[in-house]
Design a protein around this nucleic acid. Structure first.
Lengths: 214, 214
DNA sequence: TTAACTTTCAAACAGTCGTTTGAATTTGAC
DNA sequence: GTCAAATTCAAACGACTGTTTGAAAGTTAA
């Protein structure tokens, strides 16, 4: 098991499947599309991943794992090296993690962000059960750090702001523009992660630091 | 054509299809699921809407049309009744339109927001071509109003902020939480649109009014 | 070379897909 | 009640779905 040829085949399946899942969704992508684009036999997916569901899980975890590790490392660095930190620094830690993933071709570049953006709109049974308990640490640490930086906000409001922040970030990096549905030419160009980050930062920073509701 | 029974049947198909498309996506919903849940014959969809694609377009436009009209009316009211307006008032106009749709059962309630949130992540060929030119007016008017309220920002930056705003809004109302993928229990409760709006407003307002990038 | 094991392959499995057909039924106007 | 149009229906269309099978080919170590 897992000798030379096998790794190459399963990896090629993962690469192709990731792109197709992002573009057409899970239900919209067939096994035959995947295997023929990857140049492998149709039975290879079941051989290596057990099922189409198993393939999706493998595709997702290949990106989620390093992202979670990276994001956790960033927030740990921030909270241990300084006695105090600002909300902006917390946002920056999260965004840096996303950007390092998005600009590293080894991690699939921006495909990973699009996969995430798609996954949380398109509820896959695989994602509902197995992943949350595995990556709960990530969310907990960021919420705690935000809460420490914004002591005037209730826990509920901290959660909401984290939600707004991540929505804006992921959709910006993934290039998901709601108003694209209402306008022919795209308003913004999400190709350059560096530019996206520059545009995002003042918006996020001000949003996080804004006074409590009503 | 279009006598009593027909309207009832096609409407029931639209209602059921909308819910299923939102829950399972376009590719993930079959004609037989739709027609059996609606209690109509399988051939009824093709009879009334021509095809599955035609059904999706009908489902989408039934909501997009009144929303666009409402949103345009709100921004027109704001820009004509006052010589000057703030960015917050522009955001409020947009949000009020979304909320009036979301709280009106005749417009499907929050289903409409979820449909929108899903549609711009899941690119449907129907949406790519026909809709943008039809609803371009909406986006153009809001961008112009924002630009007037924030003269210190470049056009590019105005576009980005509108993008961030709509991303945060739609995902908040639709209950699409990225971090739900990483955490078992949901962080926030998106059931009450009034509460969502209260939490959103300070964040959005501060984000829009923040100083220009770098 | 033999042997055990991994990987690939073409073919077929039972279901489901969206769509079409032509006949049966219902409807509304005269 | 008659007639034509609108609507519903069961059945079937060919194409495609994810998965399984058992044999063929390839790989590795003794």
């Amino acid at each position: 098991m897992e000798t030379g040829k096998a790794l190459e085949t399963s990896q090629r399946i993962l690469d192709v499947a990731e792109l197709l899942f992002v573009e057409h969704g899970f239900a919209g992508t067939s096994m035959r599309q995947i295997t023929s684009a990857a140049g492998v036999n149709i039975a290879a997916v079941n051989y290596y991943f057990g099922s189409k569901d198993g393939l999706f899980q493998a595709v997702f975890e290949r990106r989620a794992e390093p992202f979670a590790q990276l994001a956790i490392r960033k927030i740990d660095e921030l909270t241990t090296n300084k006695n105090d930190h600002s909300a902006i620094e917390v946002a920056q830690a999260f965004m840096t993690a996303a950007m390092e993933m998005g600009s590293n071709p080894e991690y699939g570049g921006l495909v990973f962000v699009k996969l995430l953006a798609r996954s949380y709109v398109e509820p896959n049974p695989v994602l509902k059960e197995k992943l949350p308990q595995r990556y709960g640490e990530l969310t907990r640490k960021y919420l705690a750090a935000l809460s420490h930086a914004l002591p005037h906000l209730s826990n509920a409001e901290i959660n909401w702001r984290f939600h707004f922040m991540t929505s804006a970030m992921f959709n910006a990096f993934a290039g998901n523009n709601v108003m694209r549905l209402f306008m022919a030419q795209p308003l913004v160009n999400a190709r350059d992660p560096q530019l996206v980050a520059e545009m995002l930062m003042p918006f996020i920073a001000a949003g996080l630091n804004s006074p409590a509701a009503q």
